Amino acid sequence: MEARRSRIDLPHATVSVLEWLPAEETGAPVLLLHGGGADSAELSWGEVGPALAAAGHRTVAPDHPGFGQSPRAQWALTQEKLVRHVAELVEALDLSDYAVAGLSLGGGMTIGHLLDQPGRARAAILLGCYGLMPRLADGFLGPVTHLSSFLLLRSGLLAALTRSYARNDAAMERGLRDLVRNPQARTSALVQAVMAEAATGTGMEVFGEWQRDQVLWNRLRTVYTDRLSPIETPVLLVHGDRDTGVPIARVETAAELLPSGTILEVPGAGHWVQRDRPDLVIPAMLDHLRSGDHASTPRPE
């Protein structure tokens, strides 16, 4: 199924949007929010979008400002501005009674949207979600790891290291091993697509803006964990059991705090969980969307 691409002018940005239209719209529309770094709507959702549309869902996946084919915004990316951006997208796309799903950075945007616009989304899906940890790493060495990352980020060394491996096929393939654990899913085509995004787009640069806002010397600026209990929207948390960036224990805690939270632990998968195990993730997403459809259908008298 071919995606339709269009550009949308929002109050504070212009974005490029991929859209997959079903032959018959029988389910809720779905807004998909990709992750950070060298990511885009096509990279994260190129397999998910057609599958959701084939099941009857109008599926919309924007490139965040500065990512993919979206031009940079006139404002520096911060979590608060990205959350406002999601609300503007919902209005511009004329979404109602919709579901929203996000990976990593997009997962944090999804939580922010649920808190900012309570009750608007009928269902939500968080994949490898950001915003559930106080620091970049847990454990005894967590504070040291976090401070080291802060210094690398502020000095510009992290950006320089990222640019260097983004120009090297072998280095990029090694870097993707933590994100996509399945060797069959970590194809040469994926490596080349990520390298092309890193080389030609501004996603790495604007993601660095967001990181500098979020990564303080001793903590992360945004932690949603203590704010999850008021969220009444049914939420599915999808997480790879080999995700080294976000420990599964943090996701389990989030699922317990959410009034309607359920968790799918995906065996053998890393952080880019839907690229790693689409065979498990896509059916789980569809099941969650179907349960939301049934919950919203009025029962006969």
Rank of each mutant, 00 (worst) to 15 (best):
R4Q: 15
I8V: 09
D9C: 13
P11I: 08
H12F: 12
A13R: 02
S16Y: 04
L18T: 06
W20T: 08
A28T: 13
P29E: 02
L32P: 00
G35V: 01
G35P: 07
A38D: 00
A38Q: 06
A38P: 04
L43F: 09
L43P: 04
W45I: 00
W45C: 07
W45P: 00
E47R: 15
G49N: 09
L52A: 08
A55R: 03
H57M: 05
D63C: 09
F67W: 05
Q69Y: 13
S70K: 02
R72S: 10
W75L: 11
A76E: 14
L77W: 05
T78E: 01
K81A: 15
L82F: 02
H85T: 13
H85S: 08
V86E: 00
A87Y: 03
A87V: 08
V90D: 02
Y98G: 03
Y98V: 06
A99S: 11
V100P: 11
G102M: 07
G106H: 04
M109C: 11
I111R: 06
L114W: 04
L114C: 03
G119C: 07
G119T: 01
A124R: 03
A124F: 10
G128P: 02
G128D: 07
C129H: 06
Y130H: 14
P134C: 07
R135T: 14
R135W: 03
R135L: 12
L136Q: 07
G142Y: 05
V144C: 08
V144E: 10
H146F: 01
S148V: 15
S149P: 05
F150Y: 12
S155M: 08
G156T: 10
L157D: 02
L157Y: 08
L158Y: 04
A159G: 14
A160N: 08
S164F: 13
R167C: 01
L176E: 06
R177G: 12
R177V: 05
L179T: 10
V180L: 10
P183M: 01
A185C: 00
T187C: 05
T187E: 02
A189H: 13
A189G: 13
M195E: 03
A196I: 09
E197K: 09
A198W: 08
G201T: 00
T202Y: 12
M204L: 15
D213N: 10
D213E: 11
V215T: 04
L216K: 12
L216N: 04
W217F: 14
W217G: 13
N218V: 14
L220K: 05
R221E: 12
V223S: 14
Y224V: 11
Y224P: 09
L228R: 07
S229G: 09
P230D: 11
E232W: 09
T233F: 03
P234V: 06
P234K: 10
V238N: 01
G240D: 02
D243Y: 00
D243M: 00
G245H: 10
R250A: 15
R250I: 11
V251S: 08
E252M: 12
S260R: 15
G261A: 09
T262C: 13
I263R: 06
L264Q: 09
E265K: 15
H271W: 07
W272Q: 12
Q274P: 03
Q274G: 12
D276M: 04
R277P: 05
P278V: 04
L280V: 01
V281I: 06
I282P: 10
A284C: 01
A284Y: 07
L286A: 00
D287A: 11
D287S: 11
R290W: 13
R290G: 14
S291W: 13
G292K: 07
G292F: 07
D293A: 11
S296A: 14
R299A: 15
P300E: 11
